[in-house]
Design a protein around this nucleic acid. Structure first.
Length: 480
RNA sequence: GGCCCCUUCGUCUAGUGGUUAGGACGUCGGCCUCUCACGCCGAAGACACGGGUUCGAGUCCCGUAGGGGUCACCA
């Protein structure tokens, strides 16, 4: 009805421009991050531009703190805008100009109804169980406010007919115009509202495609009409399914962390967050793991699903695991450094840390877990597990450790292979099973019963640490 | 409540009229093994329901149910 330009033929469009337009009234949460991601990917995929716009027209709720949090979050995720951030609070002159246009064209009218009166009508309708729509008492008044009189500007919505939203993910969605009421576009203090600034900025910034949450779907027919009032063809819209919690309710604080920053704290890699978010509502055959670069090449709006998807921490953890082990040891070592510092561990040579990380990376789902499991590699103050000590560092165990210590002291060069050969010799000679020697040694070296293979463990720890810990355990140091 | 959207294993999903309905996470069992992991092998597990259309429906149409979104001088 409103648009009959062919849409969807993305390739023909001269220049794709998408945008992410958060309002700084909260931190960057997963839903917002995914919206930003899809717009980013869509732009990259089509060689276009990704614009960042901060919608801070509501001065009451906006804060610099949230602006910074959103910017930080996007930066951490690597969703760098090609243009922006633009702040709507600094664009009043642009809006004033456009408001004048609307007035000129007779697309809006002054409304003198007080907020209190409207509120009362709304409550009344609610009490009667009927739908509330602004009753348009001022629509035909045709007068301007007198000096000192306050008024808002409302949009003249068509009274009949319908508006069709041609949605990239849902197809055509038809709305009855009688359901749309005359929106307030300019507040009595002269500031523009959401619907107006969105449309003006999307026009001014040349936005061609808008991917946003499904919660905006009912806003779209209204905005489409505003575009029409400006005689501008609206951009193509795609309404993304919402992310919900395990209980199918909208994702909220109840479902754990919401700000993306919380996932950084929990030890998730940004590439894993990107990967997981991309797969929530979008798919590419059977592929689960994607690099950012792959996503930029493969993302397409046709493969975006229609139904809400539930956030699943288990799978998210697995995705993070996959991304962690895809990293080079040295990269992973660098990534875990801040988490070690957080735990008060002392700094280690990068090479040593990389070797230790190589042993542990298939045993941790997050950087936090990795840092935790790194303890016995980076500290000599072992935390002994009493149960393990009791079980393996008994008289027999300690005696075996002393023997092992003495044999290991002869090993040269100090390699996993040499250590293994030595252990096997001792096992053979003493008539033990490997476990009878390896387990006490593991407790002596790590404080517990869980670790990488004993030979590799010794090799990475090095001769000095290994011998010292074995000697200490043999002497009964752990028992205390 | 009005309007709008959605509905394949517990979860993320593949599927575009003909498939033993595939994969992944998770779960369970086994193998590997010096512990824990990783890896490998295997198992259980889904088309919300009811009508059509069709030789044949997860796929198309209608309805029902369930879930969700939205109804501000917020965005």
């Amino acid at each position: 009805m409103t648009r009959d330009l062919p849409r969807g033929s993305v390739a023909c469009m001269s220049q794709v421009r998408t945008r992410f337009a958060p309002s700084p009234s909260g931190f960057l949460h997963l839903g917002g991050a995914r919206t930003a991601l899809f717009n980013y990917l869509f732009a990259k995929r089509h060689g276009g531009s990704f614009v960042l716009r901060i919608e801070d027209t509501d001065r009451e709720r906006s804060s610099d703190e949230f602006v910074r949090a959103i910017l930080d979050g996007l930066q951490w995720l690597g969703l760098t805008p090609d243009e922006g951030p633009f702040f709507q609070s600094k664009r009043q002159d642009v809006y004033d100009r456009r408001i004048a246009e609307l007035l000129e064209a007779g697309a809006v009218y002054h409304c003198f109804c007080s907020a209190e009166a409207l509120d009362a009508k709304r409550k009344q309708a609610q009490a009667d169980g009927t739908k509330y729509l602004y009753d348009r008492t001022c629509r035909e008044l045709g007068r301007r406010p007198d000096a000192g009189e306050s008024a808002v500007l409302r949009f003249k919505m068509p009274l009949e007919g319908e508006t069709v939203v041609r949605d990239l993910v849902r197809g055509d969605v038809t709305f009855n115009n009688a359901e749309l009421d005359d929106l307030i576009l300019v507040r009595s203090d002269g500031s523009p509202t959401f619907h107006l600034v969105v449309v003006i900025d999307d026009i001014e910034m040349g936005i061609t495609h808008i991917l946003r949450g499904e919660d905006h779907l009912t806003n779209t027919p209204r905005q489409v009409r505003i575009f029409e009032a400006f005689s501008v063809e609206p951009p193509a819209y795609g309404h993304l399914p919402l992310i919900v919690g395990q209980d199918r309710a909208r994702l909220s604080k109840r479902h754990g962390a919401t700000a993306v920053d919380a996932y950084r704290e929990q030890g998730f890699l940004p590439s894993a967050v990107i990967n997981y978010l991309a797969r929530l509502g979008w798919s590419h055959g059977d592929q689960e793991i994607f690099t950012g670069q792959q996503l930029e090449q493969l993302f397409d709006v046709d493969s975006v699903g229609k139904s809400a998807s539930a956030f699943d921490m288990e799978k998210f953890g697995w995705v993070n695991f996959e991304h962690m082990r895809a990293l080079e040891d040295a990269e992973l070592a660098d990534a875990v450094v801040p988490y070690l510092a957080e735990r008060g561990e002392t700094e280690q040579p990068r090479e040593y840390l990389a070797a230790a990380v190589a042993q542990l990376k298939e045993r941790a789902k997050t950087l936090v877990e990795l840092a935790e499991s790194l303890h016995y590699f980076v500290s000599d103050e072992l935390r002994f597990d009493a149960k393990a000590v009791g079980k393996f560092l008994d008289d027999d165990g300690r005696a075996h450790l002393q023997t092992l210590h003495d044999e290991l002291a002869q090993v040269d060069p100090w390699t996993a292979e040499q250590v293994e050969a030595t252990l096997r010799v001792v096992v053979e000679r003493e008539g033990l099973k490997l476990g009878q020697l390896a387990q006490p040694a593991r407790v002596a070296l790590t404080g517990g019963t869980v670790s990488p293979g004993i030979f590799e463990l010794c090799a990475v720890l090095g001769r000095e640490r290994t011998l010292a810990r074995l000697a200490a355990a043999a002497a009964g140091a752990a028992a205390a």
